[in-house]
Amino acid sequence: MSALLQGLQFHPGKTIIHRLDPRVKLVISILLLATTLMYLEVTVITLVIVVEALIAYAARVVGRWARTVYGAAPLIALVFLMNYTANVFMMGEAFSVEGLYRAFAAAYRLVALLAAFSIFFLTTTPEELGMALTKLKVPYIYTFAFISAIRFAPVLAQELQSILDAQRSRGLELDKGGPLTRARRYIPVLVPLLVSVLRRSYELAEAMEVKCFGAKKERTYLKTLRLGRRDYAALSLAIPLFTLAAYIRVMVPIELP
């Protein structure tokens, strides 16, 4: 779980990917997402993942990126299983290799999807993300809520760890007993976590008020985003590639495994 979160957290760097305008990165991530959604062929999805791996390599975050993808394996296995069982038992489909293949492709797609956003979050600071959202005319209150949520995720993970340590030291064994008793065993973990989250949010609200949050309707910004040559170059590479992918999908009837 922590490996999964690690790949969704900013990792500082000075690579070309880090310095791209966050809006451009968001657009590229969405284009990658759209490409994966257009195709259900394993070859194409693999190709998308290869492209993502190259981007991750350029951003020097391959290790973290790979760990995130790897960490998502249980989730992906679950999707595969649900997809398949739903098809067989609810839709009354007969068992077939083709059915297995389709369920696999649907789960595999998720890898490409997660991988794209992992790169985005690994190379974009919460501030940059906030600036991008502001440029997209999202009201600042929502942007702020969103970026605080991102920023507090690692803090929360740490908090969870110390609560788990404290309760395990009191003899709490989370993985003992049936599902019902197991769920009950989580109460000693969830209550302190909830208390800490509530306290933290009160503290944050106070700190914001002290710093005059919302005192003026029109907000000004220290840094503003401007598209540079690098950004246009990245877009002029990404958009034609996506167009090509879309064109092939619609116009060229080829059969791929």
Binding site: E159, S162, I163, D165, A166, Q167, R170, I187, P188, L190, V191, P192, V195, S196
Partner: peptide, 8 residues
């Protein structure tokens, strides 16, 4: 260190 981590 943090006593509150354990209270529920």
């Amino acid at each position: 260190q943090n006593a509150e981590d354990m209270f529920f």
